[in-house]
Write a protein that binds this DNA or RNA. Structure first.
Lengths: 216, 216
DNA sequence: TAGATTGTTAATCGATTAACAATC
DNA sequence: TAGATTGTTAATCGATTAACAATC
């Protein structure tokens, strides 16, 4: 049971490795050394080897890593080799945009969009039906939904999250600007756009401050 | 010039402090101690005090922190006390959704949406005009645009980023799944949704693996 | 075999937490 | 003044980088 806990920092880097390897694969690259990869990705070769060795020895001394093999292995680690049935809660602009996004190729399949507005009954996005919230419980159970994407108004998020948890949902991808409280066995991943924008703005100001003195 | 470099980890936490303080302010809370805040936010009081002291002594021994004062100070640090003129490049679903988002209250003012599709000429989102890409250079200069939001197809992002850099843009908020190469004086903040979703999926699998053995 | 490059241990660096003197 | 709580230094913990023996 006690596989040593992988640090968050490592997990965060995996999708980026996966992306770079995918591109190499497309370009017909067969093998890569940690050294070359480190140059491409602007990280240290040491870090790449350490990160990968958390999960097993994927390389070979004197050769490096086979791109296809490593790509697939990281895919398995990330779980993108499996299908993840998903629903979007909130049929507004953002929910719409996400429904149009091509997450399928990584295994994330959007099965429905849920909303409360009766005007949306019978509509669909790319064939993904918009359903009313009173169908939620049945649908989640029937379609074995794993992930719910929360793109609804802030004041309705908390109750909706609770409701989803009661349905047995495994994971919440939360776009609302608010920290959710859920049981330990439910995974929450936040996308706080405002936070991201604020970090951007901090970095603009801090860059300006650093360079103010130089232009006398 | 050499104000000691603030670590990325600290910057990442600031917007969250800002949000919690904003809520307290709305609820009429006047003062808060690092201890109380630590309970609310689920971080250590030590960390809060360390984080804040990177920027100055905002508190008072025996009293704690004045909520309004601290809120304003963090706002200044993040630069949300200033106006940041912004444009969105890409009038698709995502660009649309972002144009509808209420970033104004934090100082981020969307001035225009740019696209290449002639069918969008003359349209607008909440009064924000959709303009054609050939007007880009003039508009950025005239309106002193600081931030460009990149929500366009992957294959056109790199050239567009270059073009924006040549216009003298200060910051790119990049939603494309791709690492941008820009000069040192241009700030890039990435929102890689696919990466976020993959981390979510990793955590689902890893939770399942950890608990597999228990259900014999 | 010789050269290359991994896997892994050890050293360094940085971030978080604990402790406490300063002070309101 | 006594109590509370900060600001700040010191201790701990974890993550990154360097080094190198193992091995393909």
């Amino acid at each position: 049971m006690e596989e040593r806990q992988i640090s968050k920092a490592v997990i965060k880097r995996l999708p980026r490795y996966y992306r770079y390897l995918g591109e190499m694969l497309n370009n017909g690259v067969e093998r890569i050394s940690s050294g070359e990869l480190s140059t491409k990705m602007q990280v240290t070769a040491s870090q790449i080897r350490q990160d990968l060795n958390n999960f097993g020895g994927f390389g070979q001394q004197g050769y490096g890593y086979n791109v296809k093999f490593l790509y697939d292995e990281i895919g398995k680690i990330l779980g993108v080799d499996k299908k993840h049935p998903m629903i979007i809660i909130g049929g507004g602009n953002f929910g719409h945009a996400l429904a149009n996004y091509d997450f399928e190729k990584n295994g994330f399949i959007t099965k429905a969009i849920f909303d409360v507005r009766p005007s949306l009954v019978g509509t669909d996005v790319r064939g993904i039906p918009v359903l009313m919230m009173d169908e939620l419980e049945d649908f989640v159970a029937r379609e074995h939904i794993e992930i719910a994407v929360l793109t609804l108004p802030k004041d309705r998020v908390a109750e909706t999250a609770d409701r989803l948890v009661r349905c047995g949902i495994k994971a919440l991808w939360n776009f609302a600007h608010l920290d959710l409280k859920v049981p330990d066995d439910v995974v929450v991943e936040n996308v706080h756009l405002v936070d991201s924008l604020m970090q951007l703005s901090y970095r603009i100001s801090s860059y300006e401050n650093e360079h103010k003195k130089e232009e006398v």
